[in-house]
Design a protein around this nucleic acid. Structure first.
Lengths: 223, 223
DNA sequence: GCAAAAGTGTTCCAGATACACCCATGA
DNA sequence: TCATGGGTGTATCTGGAACACTTTTGC
């Protein structure tokens, strides 16, 4: 491979779509932009990826700096999504963005400019971040359909109702309680514990645990 | 976003996994490397992506130059796969590679160093191209399972046996003829034509056509 | 008439869907 | 005792899997 003119690489950036489910609502982490371009709009956490740094390492550094979220400890599932590279997506010049999706729970953000938004009431978004979020949501739905990735949204021990709520929040539709329980239990991904959860004036719920906290493909797809 | 040291982007490259099905065998296009590193090994068609060029445009230019394959006219389906960025994957330095998968049929290559290989008898591969091909194959199987993407491997009119052979080549296993036909026809992706195909001393086969040559998701997954 | 691929139906089983009531608790 | 969410079973339907013979042609 020979080149006559000196090679100049495009700018490389990383962007993260960080999801959590709170009170039965799927949320995305966004940052309010303090500078141009798109000052005042909301954007995914992201930044530059320099030579010698993997995209994963860049993501780690950037989310830590900008949102105090640590992708290795705060997120229980992280996956590369897609690389967006339309030449005109950034008004400052050609930038190629490697995007990631991450899932966690009870994520606390200190920065006053960082905030979680419900997936179905997003504010004005910078760049092409609206389509990146839509892409991530589609992928997330697919992942929950054929893997055990829900574990990333749940505490170690959880009730079947919490589990069902999480699926409903991601899928954006309601599921039948009896069918949900029958099907999910038949997948043999979780087991009962001897603990129960008391929460108000009603029968306490059994707590369950995942057999494995590692990503596994389901024997049959969920949906 | 301010930087104290001047920003240097990693080298950006693109690599293509180009599939076709010939005589019931799934094949991948490879190039024999004439230079170091990995001189003599086989590699995916790929090359540098400079600033101002989209990855798709770079792919177009590179496959045309190196293998005389035109991804817009010779391939009927193209999709971005994944971005590989392990710092040490290229011995010459940190390179980030955006990979694509493409599918076509009857692709002719002029270059004597370019050749199609059966997916299950690949030669010595350069870089991490073995794992890229494996990743592409997995994705291809998934795509054929939940979309009508097979059309990319077939001529405009084709027999049900050709269709079944193509699935078998990609999936790497045999399918039951009666169940295959019943199921595929029930998906309503193809329609009969009034033409038949004569080919040797046996009953001629009806020719079918896809209703649409655009990618569609199946109402129920295939496999 | 024979070799070769095309074409065709039925039975069985597993899993999806639809659906309504009793249980255990706190106030 | 009542309000609240937890927990449970059955009937029906649809789609997947297994399986073998007849048809049409060229030689």
């Amino acid at each position: 491979m020979q080149y006559n003119s000196p090679y100049v690489a495009p700018t490389l950036t990383v962007d993260a779509v960080i999801f959590q489910v709170t009170d039965g609502v799927l949320q995305v982490l966004l940052l309010n932009r303090q500078n141009e371009p798109f000052k005042g709009s909301w954007a995914l956490p992201g930044g530059y990826n320099a030579q010698g740094e993997t995209t994963h390492a860049a993501l780690q550094r950037i989310t830590q700096q900008k949102t105090s979220v640590n992708i290795d400890t705060d997120l229980r599932y992280v996956e590369q999504l897609y690389t967006f590279d339309t030449v005109d997506r950034d008004p400052r010049g050609h930038a190629v963005s490697v995007t990631y999706m991450g899932c966690g729970r009870d994520i606390s953000v200190n920065d006053p400019h960082a905030q979680f938004f419900a997936i179905d009431s997003l504010p004005n978004l910078a760049y092409d971040h609206g389509s990146i979020i839509a892409y991530a949501h589609d992928r997330l739905i697919a992942k929950l359909n054929y893997t055990n990735a829900v574990y990333a949204f749940l505490p170690k021990r959880f009730t079947l109702s919490q589990l069902q709520n999480t699926y409903e929040a991601v899928f954006g539709r309601e599921l039948d309680k009896r069918n949900f329980r029958k099907k999910f239990l038949s997948l043999e991904l979780i087991h009962e514990t001897d603990e129960t959860w008391r929460d108000g004036a009603h029968r306490p719920a059994k707590l369950y645990e995942f057999n494995s906290q590692k990503l596994e493909s389901l024997s049959r797809s969920f949906d």
